[in-house]
Design a protein around this nucleic acid. Structure first.
Length: 755
DNA sequence: CCTAGGATGTTTTTT
DNA sequence: ACATCCTAGG
């Protein structure tokens, strides 16, 4: 047996070596999911499967890269020829090859969210609709969800249910916006993020030139990571590739229903259930990875406890043999600023006491806006950190502006790029002129680009437009002759952007210039780095053109930037971004009602996904887990008061450091006044009991029945109203005199029966 | 056509 | 608090 197989436990090994037919791996946090995936691929390669026949789909570039690196360690360079990447990037790659079959240029532009929103704003205005009722964010989400459920504009228009929903939300014309949006994207030769999936499905569905057969015979082995976060559309594509008459159905999906946190963008746990029914008849094998190799006992147990508060889940029994470890610490502060200070103090202490590096530590929060407070506190103490997410490098205005010029030079029909640069830097083409062009384009059903010199405007504007067009035409020409770095340099000068940026000596201006230089360096890097040609992918001619560069950057995020050599910094990121990562010490902050769980989730009564997110967050920790919340916090400029998060109460005290309760009782009894805004005053929510812990004797969980009078260390005396579930999953509904009704998992409860 | 200053909305999470 | 949108006046 190969050496790497010996390093696996029995279940893991089975999940690796059962390489034929459908396989589902349910993998708890830290259970070696990535190891199974990578070893499975390595195993396939060792069995002689050609690398290009393996398609491994992940959600982030980072996990794809990590996977490739780890496969390479086992089997060497052949790993680079496995098709491993994100859904979006790999599908974009296929679409570049096949785009013309479905009416797109192969150099199609990828619209990011900003582009999509900007186009929608134009459309909504053009239809004279109220932008407040038809807010772009909401409209875009609606369209995105339609695409994710494979509902094209025509079906949308015919679907009474959807139309009624729209009428209810006072947006009866949404279907028209959708149709126009799709039309405009196609006219601009552009695909948005959803299109990268949707158009691929359409390609497979319409199947011109039997293109589907080509990919079916090419990708003989499919692996899907984070399967719980796939949406209907993604699963539909997977099925197109795998589920057909005579197919060996070599598909392996890996996921964890308890870590499904992308419901808001259409991910559905039903895919896991559907997968079972779809492949049962083809000999589906299921493996459950339940041993956690990441975290110590208290962390694993706390996670187990809180997840039982969710109703729907596949039963799992996650355990760890890493020892008891440290208990979970909870920090409570008065204000959000204090939270920042206290967390950073705590970080310093941990670093000293346990000799942790900056890179061992991460601060996680629910919303990106929370990062600022910690940045300030870390700055004051001169501790290095890096913020992930939020405004990414490629979303900065100056970067987008320059890229818009680049995009136009490759695809002049790119409407959003044109709108960005037509009057930037200012060249006398104002709003009125632009409106006239847009109008002409709509009336004659032609791209904006073709209309800019035909539009009927005054001589000044006419002149400016002619000059603009000539300038872009030069760029288009040069782009074909020069490499990406050379042409970008030329564009930067000739467009006037460089002059404008250099002339701005303000702090912000300097930083904009720095960003442009960083972009330029990135492009130089792209040109100078040799890429090994993959012989199987002859369709792709590796070159250093601008067009090639643009294809590669569209789907990059901040995560994908090289940090250089100094990587000893504290990581700050959202709980969503943290999925799949692990750190010796995690600080999970802002644990307040309306923040985590979020206000939106509470409004729509969807706390379960928030709880899964909480579960994901705490299971990132290997040894130290610190949770924090603040009494008051600034939001939209004024102070708001929130209660501590309900999730804090769902962790049993067994796993918490003692300091929390004593401290919080003291602070919590302070009454406050003068609460501003329409937020209700925060009601202190700790429950003082005068039970002496030393005389407290919890009864065995199995003995607790409905009707019992019971004692709980924190909640005091209560009556068991009912008990449901069986064995390990028994949940008691208990009414406490002080704390009200609670649902408690008996497996973990410490309850003393009184009578 | 451009600018400045005021009004307004925005925060959930991401490829 | 901050960014974007809107409006009036030059």
């Amino acid at each position: 047996m190969s050496k790497y197989l010996q390093s696996l436990n029995e279940v893991q090994r089975q999940a690796v070596i059962n390489s034929q037919g459908p396989v589902m791996v349910i993998a708890g946090p830290g259970s070696g999911k990535t190891r199974v995936l990578t070893y499975r691929i390595a195993y396939l390669l060792e069995q002689g499967i050609p690398p290009h026949e393996i398609l491994a789909l992940t959600f982030t570039n980072k996990s794809a890269r990590e996977m490739k690196e780890r496969i390479a360690k086992v089997v060497g360079n052949v790993a680079n020829r496995v098709w491993a990447g994100t859904f979006h990037s790999l599908f974009a790659r296929v679409l570049r090859i096949e785009a013309e079959k479905i009416g797109f240029p192969s150099d199609f532009t990828i619209y990011d969210t900003t582009d999509s929103k900007s186009l929608l704003t134009t459309i909504i205005k053009g239809m004279n609709l109220d932008g407040k009722v038809y807010n772009v964010g909401g409209v875009r989400a609606r369209i995105s969800s339609a695409k994710s459920n494979i509902i094209p504009p025509k079906l949308y228009a015919e679907n009474e249910e959807l139309r009624t929903e729209d009428r209810h939300s006072k947006r009866p014309y949404l279907y028209k916006i959708y149709a126009e949006y799709v039309r405009r994207c196609k006219k601009a030769g552009a695909m948005d993020f959803d299109d990268l999936l949707y158009q691929l499905f359409i390609l497979f569905y319409k199947n011109p030139d039997n293109v589907l057969e080509k990919y079916r015979s090419r990708f003989k082995y499919l692996l899907v990571d984070e399967f719980q976060d796939t949406n209907y559309l993604q699963y539909a594509i997977i099925k197109k590739l795998v589920n057909f008459e005579g197919s060996p159905r070599n598909i392996c999906v890996v996921g964890d229903d308890a870590q499904s946190i992308y419901g808001f963008r259409g991910a559905t746990i039903e895919n896991i259930l559907n997968f079972e029914t779809d492949y049962k008849k083809f000999g589906l094998q299921t493996f459950k990875l339940e041993q956690n190799y990441r975290s110590t006992y208290h962390i694993v147990q706390a996670a187990n406890e809180i997840i039982t508060f969710n109703k729907n889940q596949i039963k799992k029994d996650i355990w760890s043999d890493k020892g008891k470890g440290h208990k979970i610490k909870i920090i409570k502060t008065m204000t959000d600023t204090d939270e920042g200070k206290r967390i950073v103090d705590q970080i310093r202490e941990q670093k000293n006491r346990y000799h942790l590096q900056n890179s061992d530590i991460a601060i996680l929060y629910r919303t990106n806006a929370q990062s600022r407070i910690f940045e300030e506190a870390l700055n004051r103490q001169r501790i290095k950190y890096k913020v992930y997410g939020g405004m990414s490098f490629y979303e900065r205005k100056e970067v987008k502006d320059l890229i818009a010029y680049l995009r136009m030079s490759v695809n002049p029909n790119d409407e959003e790029a044109l709108k960005r640069v037509i009057n930037f830097p200012k060249r006398g083409i104002g709003n009125t002129t632009q409106q006239k062009i847009i109008e002409l384009a709509i009336n004659t059903d032609r791209p904006l680009w073709e209309c800019i010199t035909e539009v009927n405007v005054g001589p000044r504007a006419k002149n400016a437009l002619t000059e603009f067009k000539q300038m872009i035409q030069v760029f288009i020409q040069k782009q074909k002759e020069l490499d990406a770095a050379q042409v970008t340099d030329l564009i930067l000068r000739q467009s006037g952007m460089l002059k404008l940026l250099k002339g701005d000596l303000s702090i912000e201006g300097m930083s904009r210039m720095e960003n442009i230089e960083a972009l330029l360096n990135g492009i130089k890097d792209f040109v100078d780095t040799d890429v090994v040609l993959e012989e199987e992918n002859v369709e792709e001619i590796e070159n250093k053109s601008l067009a090639q560069y643009l294809q590669n950057i569209a789907l990059l995020t901040d995560f994908d930037q090289d940090d250089g050599d100094d990587n000893n910094y504290i990581t700050l990121m959202s709980t969503h971004s943290a999925k799949g990562l692990e750190f010796p010490s995690i600080f999970l902050v802002g644990l307040e009602e309306n923040l985590f769980p979020s206000y939106m989730a509470l409004q729509s009564d969807d706390v379960e996904e928030e709880r899964r997110l909480f579960y994901v967050a705490i299971t990132r920790a290997e040894q130290f887990l610190t949770l924090s919340f603040a009494n008051s916090r600034y939001k939209f400029g004024d102070i708001r008061y929130n209660n501590p998060s309900r999730f804090l109460e769902e962790i049993s005290e067994l796993h918490l450091e003692k300091s929390y309760t004593s401290k919080s009782e003291k602070v919590n009894t302070v009454s406050r006044s003068g609460v501003s805004g329409n937020f209700k005053k925060a009601v202190p929510k700790t429950y003082t009991t005068n039970i002496d812990p030393s005389s407290f004797a919890p009864s065995p969980p199995a003995s607790i029945q409905a009707g019992h009078k019971v004692l709980h260390l924190r909640f005091g005396e209560g009556k068991v109203l009912r008990v449901d579930g069986a064995n390990d999953n028994r949940l008691a509904t208990i009414f406490f005199q002080e704390a009200g009704e609670k649902r408690i998992a008996l497996r973990f409860a410490k309850l003393q029966i009184l009578k």
